[in-house]
Design a protein around this nucleic acid. Sequence first.
DNA 1: CATGAATGAGCGTTCATTCAT
DNA 2: AATGAATGAACGCTCATTCAT
Lengths: 223, 223, 223, 223
Amino acid sequence: MVYKSSKETQERKDLKKKHIIDTAIKVFSINGYHGTTVKDVVEAADTSVGTFYFYFKNKEDLFETLYDDVSEEFYTALCNSLENINNEIDLGFSKAITFFLKVIELNRPLAKIMLIEAVGLNPRFERKRAEVTQKYVNYTAGYFEQMKQCNNVSIPDVKICSLAFIGTLYNVIMEWLQNASSISLTDYAYALIIYNLQALKIDYTDSQVKKGIDEILNKNLNM
Amino acid sequence: MVYKSSKETQERKDLKKKHIIDTAIKVFSINGYHGTTVKDVVEAADTSVGTFYFYFKNKEDLFETLYDDVSEEFYTALCNSLENINNEIDLGFSKAITFFLKVIELNRPLAKIMLIEAVGLNPRFERKRAEVTQKYVNYTAGYFEQMKQCNNVSIPDVKICSLAFIGTLYNVIMEWLQNASSISLTDYAYALIIYNLQALKIDYTDSQVKKGIDEILNKNLNM
Amino acid sequence: MVYKSSKETQERKDLKKKHIIDTAIKVFSINGYHGTTVKDVVEAADTSVGTFYFYFKNKEDLFETLYDDVSEEFYTALCNSLENINNEIDLGFSKAITFFLKVIELNRPLAKIMLIEAVGLNPRFERKRAEVTQKYVNYTAGYFEQMKQCNNVSIPDVKICSLAFIGTLYNVIMEWLQNASSISLTDYAYALIIYNLQALKIDYTDSQVKKGIDEILNKNLNM
Amino acid sequence: MVYKSSKETQERKDLKKKHIIDTAIKVFSINGYHGTTVKDVVEAADTSVGTFYFYFKNKEDLFETLYDDVSEEFYTALCNSLENINNEIDLGFSKAITFFLKVIELNRPLAKIMLIEAVGLNPRFERKRAEVTQKYVNYTAGYFEQMKQCNNVSIPDVKICSLAFIGTLYNVIMEWLQNASSISLTDYAYALIIYNLQALKIDYTDSQVKKGIDEILNKNLNM
DNA sequence: CATGAATGAGCGTTCATTCAT
DNA sequence: AATGAATGAACGCTCATTCAT
């Protein structure tokens, strides 16, 4: 049953699978999960249904792998952004949020899938999504916990504050996704940062915040 | 010609339509929109497909009326909750949020539909949902605008702060919806209130916040 | 079971039935039999489905009565037109055809139902239509038989000639029905008359034919 | 990419499509368009609904392709039959009509579809049918035009005479279709030929007509 | 007699999935 | 590995007909 697959063919397979996933992201983000047929995907990916079912168990399997990929990508982005926070918390926090918004902005279709298309698919997937969301919240929570012990911040309940914090990001991004893309998402960074800095009672100066934003915006991101 | 348009039959019709909608809320909140067939709804409502299509143009029409109803209900709840805020802002704010959470808690299926099932249905409906969300944001924004002019609060951008504020509520509710219902949503009220009071730099005392929460929790709500 | 129905109520019933039939003719001629629902008819007739089923057994019953009425009307027209033929055959024949075409022209919707909508409805009705058509053919055949014995005409097979004769009328009328109604059907009378006069080898003069046409066209028809 | 578009598979596809069409002709000619369900067709063709919709856009698409095929076939038959007319017009004309009737006789189901089932389907298709009919009429008209210039015939209006001519054929065929199939359609040839020869004032001798009929009837037709 | 709410059999159609090639 | 023809369960929806009021 285990055909000998040389490294090269394995690579070709991986590439093909990746190609289908990348195409599917585009198609799903335009037509939605239920509005997209397997035929739509394979035609856009210039392949055939048969090939599709060679690489994926079924339509939901595709979406799940795709969702995992995307979610991983964003998770890494979030982690990277927060890691850079050192003892200049206001600067680091500003940079982190701006960075995250920038990542989202550069990957609109991915964001649409994560935040819109993946919601309400079916009970089973809803559970999965809840778990993924939890992971994000936990990561932030861990961070907040750390801040709580080292600094003079006001966080009555780390978990709820994490939820609240991510909620602020979520809703601003949602608004941006649903409206014209002509506006830059990072335009919203300043108000969003202030809101959350104050919410957490982190000491900050306006200049540090603006400095953080600028540093990120002037940096080149490659994703 | 207008024999049967008598008040009684009209009332019976309204009741029947309401009955179908109420049943549909339950069914949709369990199986999701795509997981629910028209047959599911009519069987649960103890009626027939023909009758269904007498009252609704199609499945989407049902969901739309249902969504409008639910959204209206929550909107009213939000308005009612915020209206009671007078010059004791911290108390009023606490009461408002607690009240809103309590309304949600008492209407779990409705909340599930508003926040989960209605998302990512299809591009057309997505637009509708964006508009409804906008309505909520605008209402809160109007309120924040008012506060900005009368009080010593820090709101750099009213619109973004509204989005952020609603985002905090949204995400906490989502977490509650996706997990076991054994926990009371209002348990999250305190941390949520503090987060947003601080975010808006509203002067508050802990006792006022707790008083506000208690007042609402000990009050009987009839919806 | 036999309710006492005074003459007046009976008249009212007849009128209502007639009203529904007349309305149905219009609706059927526009949307076709299968494109017309019972609801369409009753709404156009400003009545209710219940009432409809009081007067008619079902949708097909309506069409059948309607068809019978229309067919009777045309049959009478055909008979009347042919009866006037005396020993000036060419004149009489011309008048008859022109008259028939004029009747059709004044009753476009009826003609559409007879010649288009009634065709291919279903096997059962197809038989009925064949019988009705036969009646027309037989009448004409009887007339041709008569002509054959009295005059110098060439009719090898009375039945086939009848079919052929009616076919010429039929096809010209069909063409007129399917195209813009801006052209008058009677414009086709002359060529049609000549075709059939020659086909039957009836002696004719051009002036007699034209006289026959003119006499009918200048006469007022009330139907 | 074009592996399976090999000649063989393409041929198999064409055959399958043809098979469905041929089966459908039989089924439609028995039950009529509205009396035939897609399920009826696929069961008769020993295939599945999915396959049906792989080859045809929908039920109407099937009927349309089928109608186009049939109509093309008869058109070719008509053209072939008329082309053989040379300077012995009476002989050629007789042969043409007899040939056409024979073709019809050998393809009863096709004729039923063309002349009965295709009528009154719906306004859209009615337009299509009118166009196809027009094509027939135009062809005959072209022929009559030619005769008019070369020979001593009496045709006041080429278009109307074409309509009339085709009408004679149509009605005789209709009668044959609607009644028992025990009678041969070609039995009607003689009377029909005489009717139209006289109608067009074409010089003819009885022997030539009979010769024309016989020649066709004794010839083997392969269609 | 009149009404129109209620019924449900049955239709056309879609599309995820399989499998022979 | 790749193809795409074949499958059929399952869906949304229509509409002729019934019947309680």
